[in-house]
C-alpha cells in the first residue's frame, strides 16, 4: 500500500483485494460482539478535515477511526479559521504541528487531497474531492458487490446518471476495472465527460438496453440544478429516460442488485419501491462503509510510520 489513498489508481489489484479482505475479516471479527472496539490505533490521531458538508461520510470515517481506538478530531470548514480565509496549506501546517497521523479530507476542489499530501507527513485519505474521486466509496461499493454476488471478476456493472460531475463514478470505473468487473456507463450524452471514451468502460445512452445485461445497477445522484444548466430538459424527462423504477427493475436478471451511494433523490433517479426492495443494497452500503474505512485506516496507519 502507498502512504496515501488519494485516488483508486493508488491501489493495484493486490492492494484493493487486501482492503476488501481486511474489511471482511474485521466484519467477521466484530460480528455479534458487544464491544465493537479494537485497540489497533490507540494513540494515533485521525483528523476529519471536511470542507464540504457530508454528514454521512464524516460519521462513517469517525466511527471507523473510533472503532480502531484512534483519537478523532473533526475539523469542519464552517465556523473555523478556514471560513476566515485560512489557506489549505496553512490549515495543513497547523494539523501537522498538532501531530495528526492521518488526515481524512473532503473538499469541493478536485485534487485538494493531492495538494494536502505535499504538506503533511501523515497519511492523507481522500473522502471525496470535487468531481474527481471518492476512493473509499468505490471500495465499499466493490465490497458490497463481492458480498452479495460472491465475486467481482466478470461482474457486469451499469453506472447510471450524472457521470460528468460524479467522483463516485470516476472512482468506481477505475477500481471495478482493476478488480476485473465490466463497467457500462449509462447517461444522457450531456452528463458524460468529453474524453469518456478513454475510460476502461462501455458507454450507452440507453438504460433499457443495458439493464437485462447487468448484474449490478449503480444509480448516481442527479442534482435538479443541472436542469437549469440545460444538461437535460426536465426532471420528469430525466426520470422517464434514466430513472430506475419498478418495471425497469423487473428487466434485471434475477440475482442483480441495485446500489446507490446516497443521498438519494427518490422519484428522480430511483423510485421509492426500488430503493426499498430486497435487491437494494443501499443500507448495507452504509454499514459496509464503516468496515471498509476501518480496513483503510488500519492498512495506512497500522504499520510502521514512514
Amino acid at each position: 500500500m502507498k502512504r496515501h489513498l488519494l485516488e483508486v489508481a493508488d491501489l493495484d489489484r493486490a492492494d484493493a483485494t487486501l482492503v476488501l479482505d481486511t474489511a471482511a475479516q474485521i466484519d467477521q471479527a466484530l460480528a455479534g460482539r458487544e464491544v465493537k472496539k479494537l485497540p489497533t490505533l490507540r494513540g494515533r490521531t485521525v483528523v476529519n478535515l471536511f470542507y464540504e458538508d457530508s454528514t454521512r461520510t464524516r460519521i462513517s470515517f469517525e466511527l471507523a477511526a473510533k472503532r480502531l481506538s484512534a483519537d478523532v478530531i473533526n475539523f469542519s470548514a464552517k465556523g473555523s479559521s478556514v471560513s476566515k480565509g485560512e489557506s489549505l496549506k496553512d490549515t495543513a501546517l497547523t494539523l501537522e504541528a498538532m501531530g495528526s497521523d492521518a488526515v481524512v479530507v473532503r473538499h469541493s476542489a478536485s485534487g485538494a487531497p493531492h495538494r494536502l499530501a505535499n504538506w503533511v507527513r501523515g497519511s492523507v485519505v481522500n473522502a471525496g474531492d470535487g468531481t474527481h474521486e471518492h476512493p473509499t466509496q468505490a471500495l465499499l461499493d466493490a465490497y458490497t458487490i463481492r458480498r452479495r454476488l460472491g465475486r467481482l471478476e466478470g461482474v457486469r456493472v451499469a453506472v447510471v446518471g450524472d457521470v460528468l460531475h460524479s467522483r463516485v463514478a470516476r472512482s468506481n470505473v477505475g477500481l471495478l476495472h482493476t478488480l476485473g468487473a465490466e463497467v457500462t456507463l449509462v447517461a444522457p450524452p450531456t452528463l458524460l465527460p468529453v474524453g469518456v471514451r478513454s475510460w476502461p468502460a462501455e458507454v450507452s445512452y440507453d438504460l433499457d438496453a443495458v439493464l437485462p445485461k447487468s448484474d449490478v445497477v449503480m444509480m448516481l445522484r442527479v442534482q435538479a440544478e443541472r436542469m437549469n444548466a440545460s444538461f437535460f430538459p426536465s426532471a420528469r424527462e430525466y426520470s422517464r429516460r434514466y430513472g430506475l423504477d419498478a418495471p425497469r427493475m423487473a428487466a434485471l436478471p434475477d440475482d442483480a442488485i441495485v446500489m446507490h451511494p446516497g443521498p438519494m433523490n427518490r422519484g428522480m433517479e430511483i423510485a421509492a419501491e426500488v430503493a426499498d426492495s430486497v435487491r437494494s443494497t443501499i443500507v448495507e452500503q452504509v454499514a459496509n462503509g464503516v468496515s471498509v474505512r476501518m480496513a483503510v485506516l488500519y492498512l495506512l496507519l497500522g504499520g510502521s510510520p514512514q
Binding site: D21, T22, A29, P39
Partner: peptide, 22 residues
Amino acid sequence: VDITLYRDDLRRRGVRALEPTV
C-alpha cells in the same frame, strides 16, 4: 481468534493481512 488488530508491535512490523476470527 486473529490477534493482529490487538498486537502491540504493529508500528514496528508493518501491516499484516488479517485472518479469520470465528
